[in-house]
Amino acid sequence: MVGSAGGLMVSMCHRVNDVMRLCCELSANQQVQTTVRGSGKGAAAAGGLAFAGGLIGGPLGIAVGGAVGGLLGCWMTSGQFKPLPQIIMELSPQQQQKLYDDLLAVMGDIQWTDLVQLTALVMGNATLKQQLTATLLGYISKELQAQVHYVD
């Protein structure tokens, strides 16, 4: 019996992994990028140092302060703009399970044997693809409090 329970766990892990990889595929096709909260700090640093530079050094101080502030802002926000597939693969096991459960509710009784079959089933059904993408983006926005952007 232990062997069958262990096999069930492995099977479940594969199913969660299949769905996470499907999410990566969906988000890559949509050209989605996310912004983790905090990018406002970088903009504030750039603007604040440009203002301070202007008070101290006039027009040249604005340029120097803006450049230094821009570099500081870039450093402060580095790593906060990430492609959605990267965010998905960095989710904790608990977060992946929650996302899996949310997506499974949309998928209903779809059965698949591997990632290739799952991807074909979803990509071949425009309505399902749209519903899963909306669920994924909703999860990212609500649970991770990230802003979603479409990359041109």
Rank of each mutant, 00 (worst) to 15 (best):
A46W: 00
Q95T: 08
A46D: 01
C24D: 10
G124M: 06
M76N: 09
E90L: 08
G57L: 00
P85H: 10
V19A: 05
V116C: 06
Q117L: 03
T133K: 13
T113R: 14
E25K: 11
L91K: 02
I62W: 09
L121M: 06
V16C: 02
R37C: 02
Q131T: 11
G73F: 02
L26D: 00
G47F: 05
T133M: 07
A63N: 02
G58P: 00
G66K: 11
Q31W: 04
L104C: 06
G65H: 02
T77R: 08
S39R: 12
S27W: 03
W75L: 15
C23G: 15
V36L: 09
V116R: 07
G79N: 10
V16S: 06
V19C: 02
I88R: 05
P83N: 13
V68F: 14
L103R: 08
N29Q: 11
V36D: 00
G124L: 03
G58R: 02
M76K: 12
C13T: 14
M20C: 04
A105M: 05
D109P: 00
V19L: 12
R21K: 07
D18L: 04
M12A: 14
G79W: 12
N29T: 02
K82T: 08
A52C: 12
G42K: 03
L132P: 00
C24N: 01
M123I: 10
A43D: 10
